[in-house]
Design a protein around this nucleic acid. Structure first.
Lengths: 145, 145
DNA sequence: ATTTTAAATGCAACTGTATTGCTTTTATAT
DNA sequence: ATATAAAAGCAATACAGTTGCATTTAAAAT
């Protein structure tokens, strides 16, 4: 059984990215969370370990390689989550649903839920679907009641 | 048959909003378009007829009253469209699909398309659904082929 | 018609997100 | 150990959006 760091190093190499501290750190943070992570939160956690610009570039590189994917929440804030194995560079298996909790504001990737086919008006060609459900997550609906 | 301006004045009064130049202008612009309109575009068209801040406040007031609704496009940019009659203050009939064209970047409200019910994991309580499809709109898929 | 006033606008300043150009550092290949 | 391409760091800038406050104005009250 290999540890996280080893796994992440392999992941970077596989994607032709150098093994650097900021990149490993971002992967550590994202993998330790059960929901998508907002850019502001990442920035805060990284603190002065990495420059803001570096963080942006790390996230951008990861997104291009299909290591993570970006989800915009209801306010337009960028959130990032590690892609499941079915994701690959430029070929995101993007059709999964995201759930944005009104209470804790977490964004969950509901990989299991698939978006039903859609009937669109004649002429429209659908390439990708992006479905965000808002409401209360399992955790918060427990607490509230 | 009444003209636009009369209609818009009634709409404002009905919602307890004063009949002001910036508000009428925003309604004119939005009603003359077949797709949602981005904040930057609105700002540009309004030019110095109204302050940036005023535009933001007009849009916010309209949204609260259910006169318009906001859609974020793939980049997180705010776009606004006049609500159909089924919308009302704080009770948006939001379940309709938006279509974001990759080519012309227009956002169409597909009022006719309804979002199919969704099976989510136990505990999650879905309040609202927000589905954005991206691809080519009828216009652009014509031109491309 | 005038006055009143609550609402809306305009202006200035500011916050936060994101980007670009350029220099320095560093991971990796030689 | 060295070379080099990639990445990080830094400074400056662009842009979206917000807040506080003074001024103006639409509409109600007189």
């Amino acid at each position: 059984m290999e540890n996280n760091t080893e796994r992440f190093e392999k992941l970077l190499v596989k994607n032709g990215l150098k093994r650097t501290a900021p990149r490993l750190q971002v992967l550590e943070i994202l993998s330790g969370r059960d929901s998508a992570t907002s850019q502001p939160y990442l920035e805060q956690v990284m603190g002065k370990d990495a420059d803001r610009v570096t963080l942006y570039r790390v996230l951008q590189a990861f997104e291009e390689k299909g290591i993570i994917h970006k989800v915009l929440d209801q306010q337009g804030t960028a959130n990032y989550a590690i892609c499941s194995d079915s994701c690959s560079a430029h070929e995101h298996h993007d059709e999964h649903v995201h759930f944005n909790c009104d209470n804790c504001h977490k964004i969950y990737c509901l990989d299991a839920v698939k978006i039903p086919a859609l009937k669109v008006p004649a002429g429209f060609k659908v390439e990708r679907l992006n479905l965000i459900a808002t409401g209360l997550c399992a955790n918060c609906s427990d607490k509230v009641n």
